[in-house]
Design a protein around this nucleic acid. Structure first.
Lengths: 124, 124
DNA sequence: TAGTTGTGTATAAAGTGTATATTGTATATA
DNA sequence: TATATACAATATACACTTTATACACAACTA
């Protein structure tokens, strides 16, 4: 269970944690019932406050990814396959949006991206 | 981190701030990742409005000298344009690779991704 | 069973940057 | 001179991230 954060990222710490946990769930690296690092332990490891880890876990819980039990810890919740599929589609879209934003910054055209995509697609 | 302003100068305050920050970057007194005084703190020290410090920092950010993160502060950015460009290209490639992996898993074809990409591209 | 340690939880606060509407001050132009 | 225009600087209120500290519940251990 490895979570890393970047201080220079514009993304808030609690979001970075959320995203990484979600990724691991969607990629099946984390499965139902698996334990997450405790809020305290994670806070210690990342040198941040418990409250920040709590915020991340709390929101993950509200979104149905995990559940927390006082005195015990936090765990991966049961995942509905249909919903998982939807979320995977959503993450693809998110990534495409990021690609587009970054590409426009660098002046890459839609055609450029498509060509690059094709090359990478055929390589793998 | 010392910034001084002169009220008798004809140069606007926000320009004086900008120039001094740039000087310190060019002279290596400020390096990548170093924290600048927060907009509020600097405003307090110089007895000026936050809005003026914001304007200075905002323009420095647009020019690529610094970056600001809500809740954290403002920091010196990576200065070498070539390296920055390389990094951006690398992140685009990373995202595309992820998109491809996720798409294959869900059974999306190259053509599917391209169409999706086109729609998103034109939306933004 | 009492104590200790490890969990999550709750409240309140301090620190960031951001946005909108306004005021002052030059400068140009009719 | 009078009016318009542009720009610097502001006050005030907002939104967001992160934190410190103390409390409450669960499990382990002597």
């Amino acid at each position: 269970m490895q979570i890393l954060i970047s201080n220079s990222s514009k993304e808030p710490i609690y979001q970075q944690i959320k995203h990484q946990v979600k990724e691991k769930i969607l990629s099946s690296e984390l499965r139902e019932g698996d334990a997450l690092p405790s809020m305290r332990q994670l806070a210690k490891d990342l040198h941040i406050s418990v409250i920040t880890t709590k915020r991340a876990y709390e929101e993950l819980e509200k979104e149905g990814f995990i559940y927390s039990i006082t005195g015990k810890g936090s765990f991966i919740a049961e995942q509905n396959p249909d919903i998982i599929k939807e979320k995977k589609l959503a993450t693809i879209e998110d990534k495409l949006v990021e690609v587009i934003a970054n590409s426009k910054e660098l002046g890459l055209s839609l055609q450029d991206i498509k060509e690059w995509l094709t090359i990478l697609y055929e390589e793998r």
